[in-house]
Design a protein around this nucleic acid. Sequence first.
DNA 1: TGCCGGATCCTG
DNA 2: AGGATCCGGCAA
Length: 179
Amino acid sequence: MAARILSERFYERDTLTAAKELLGCFLVRKIGRKTWRARITEVEAYVGEDDLACHASKGRTKRTETMYGEPGHAYVYLIYGMYHCLNIVTEKGGFPAAVLVRAVEVEDVPKKETDGPGKLCRFLEIDRTFDAWDVTRGEKLWVERGRLGKGEEIEATKRIGVEYAGHCKEYLWRFEIAK
DNA sequence: TGCCGGATCCTG
DNA sequence: AGGATCCGGCAA
C-alpha cells in the first residue's frame, strides 16, 4: 500500500515529464474515516520565473515561497476570492515549478463535481491549510501510482486562463487524457 | 494604504 | 456576458 505512494523522487524531475506521468495517477484524500480516490485526468505545468503564466514570474514572495520549496509538497492558493487550486511542487528545491491539477474523476461521483481545479478542491475539501503540505507521507492527502488505460493517450494543448502571459500563453503545457 | 485583476465557476 | 468575493502585488 505505502509503496504505491509517489515519492519525492517522482516530483524532483522535469515538470513537463512529471505532469504527463501524473495523468492516470490517483489523488487520495482521507477525511476522517472516508477515503476518496480521484483519478487525475487533466493537469497543467507552470515552470520557473521565465514562464509569464507562472506565479513565480513575479519572483520570490510570501505566496510563491512554496513553489521554491521542496518537490512533493502541495502549493494551494485562493483564486477569484472563492476557489482554491491544488498544485504539486516539482523540480529541485530552489527552482519554482509546479503541476496544477485541473480535473479528476471519482468513482460513483458525477464528473461535473470534479472536472475543474476549483471544483475538485471544493469536493475533496482542499484549502490553503494544505499549502506546503508534504504529499509524500501518505497522510490526509497524497498521490498513488497509476497509469493510462488501453486506448488512452495524452493530448497537449494551451493552458487555460493565461491570456495575459505573452508568448507563454502559446505553450502546450496543458495535458489531459484523451481516448 | 489603495487599487486592480486573477491558473474559476455558476447563472441568466 | 457578468457577478461573486478576497488576497497578492505594485504604485503612490
